[in-house]
Design a protein around this nucleic acid. Structure first.
Lengths: 119, 119
DNA sequence: TTCGATATATCGATATTTGGCATAATATAT
DNA sequence: ATATATTATGCCAAATATCGATATATCGAA
């Protein structure tokens, strides 16, 4: 269960690793290796999370109550090694707040001219 | 001088602290304490960087070649304690690439439904 | 049945953040 | 003039997080 923080906002800002893991799990329940692939694919290889980073991050996130281990999906796949993870409601809230923070940062980046004003 | 990385992209993803410092300095040259205030103000108090975090981050960024110490601005200012920092061209490039990465993350957040689709 | 990709776990080294404490200069109020 | 609050930086030890390497096992295809 979670640490001393109750308010989702108290976790912010998240580390990039934490953010990418939550982002992957917001899409669907996933196993560890799948998360690595997902992050790599989504960032076109620019961001990659190694096993050492990932599994320790997952453990911490379970401890914080952001995610929990869950049953593998019904559908098709039967690899007994896989351990699936699921975003909790609390974790979803954390991710939403972080997303908002990132959006604010992007706005700020536009204002100070670090990004083309529109796209 | 900088570490073994030459390509600005090799530094990504930045830690939130690093990002907020670069964002502040992208606006104008600033002294350490001013950076703390700037971050606090810009995030409406939601993000605050303490002195321990800030000054060690500044030292590292100088080492990396992202920023450099510079002369205080001509105008007005008469506090001899203040040490001003300036974003290098290289640091600007790092900040721009990080801004782009953040923008991509925000897009992804929209796609998976962590953000209202538009604002 | 051997090979490469998949999948998780764990290690120690390194990097980074954190919060507190110390110090000192400056500004403001009394 | 003196107190005191704010500004400003520096340093430290502890907590957090990342990284790369290694180990082990399973799966699927050739």
């Amino acid at each position: 269960m979670a640490a001393a923080r109750k308010n989702p906002a108290d976790w912010l800002p998240l580390s990039p690793t934490q953010w990418y893991v939550l982002l992957a799990l917001a899409e669907s329940d996933m196993h560890g290796y799948g998360i690595m692939q997902s992050v790599k694919a989504r960032t076109e290889g620019r961001v990659r999370i190694g096993p050492g980073t990932l599994y320790s991050a997952l453990d911490r996130m379970i401890e914080y109550g952001w995610i929990e281990e869950c049953d593998p999906p019904e559908h098709g796949d039967v690899d007994a090694r896989r351990r699936y993870y699921h975003l909790t409601q609390y974790g979803t809230r954390v991710a939403e707040m972080e997303a908002q923070r990132l959006a604010n940062s992007v706005q700020d980046a536009r204002i100070v001219g670090l990004l083309g004003s529109h796209p």
